[in-house]
Amino acid sequence: MNVIKTDSLVKFYGKSRGIDGINLQVEEGDFFGFIGPNGAGKSTTVRTLLGLISPTSGSAEILGKDIIKNKTEILSEIGYMPSEAAFYPDMRVREVIKLSAALRKRDCAATAKHLCERLQLDTEKKIKELSLGNRKKVSIVCALQHTPRLCILDEPTSGLDPLMQREFYAILKELNESGTTVFLSSHILSEVQRYCKHAAVIRDGKILVCDSIENIGHTEAKRVSLRGITSPPALEGIKDLKQNGDTISFLYSGSPSMLLSELSKLTITDINITEPDLEEIFMHFYSKEERK
């Protein structure tokens, strides 16, 4: 069953483009990544799905129900974590968590307590006293305390320290294993690669690719930086060559053993082989798009 299904979803803000014909399908039980740079249309898609903004045209279904006609019904099954965690500044953390549960007409005290403990969240503090990271934790508890069928998370880890990010993803993974579908909008590729099963890449309001992480990552090149040489190794599959003094950097998409064998012939003083950053992945997709 498709938990999220959009059909040519379009949103224009006056004349400016938000999203332009989004077709997306997310299966029940999936851990789905939604990747794109700032301004690509990620938040617009999420906000349209949640009914915060109305689509200009097209339609979408969540859990088999129309997002406009059955909005309230759908929202009772969703846990949403916005990119900006804003709450009523004069309220205490426990009051906000309780308010969120009350708005759902649910008693989630036990789960909320458990989540707060895992996230080391002080529930007696006032919202206005919290750092961004701690506000994010409140947001996590509000989004997850009712054990939703679908979690929609918009840039969830910004502001969280690495330990908390790990704990957060551990919680998400447990939820996902018990049947919750996770829809993760992010521009941090490593998160998506590590945790998601499927992903879609959005750019300029359009979906560029939607596939399993393995398939998306399959053609992925590596960024190789070499110090101590002034000309690149004689290899096939080198792209985006950059030279800065005695440092040469390039994207390599050929065989790793060929690379190592070629490098062993060179006198290099330092070497760095990394996953290409998000921009490079996008460039990869753009060049594919342009070829089409």
């Binding site: 949640l50 915060l52 909005k71 309230t72 969703i78 916005p82 804003a86 969120s100 708005l103």
Partner: peptide, 14 residues
């Protein structure tokens, strides 16, 4: 103004 509408309106309340 305080960006709390997003919090309120993503709960199951019309």
């Amino acid at each position: 103004k305080e960006h709390t509408a997003e919090f309120l309106l993503t709960h199951p309340i019309s």
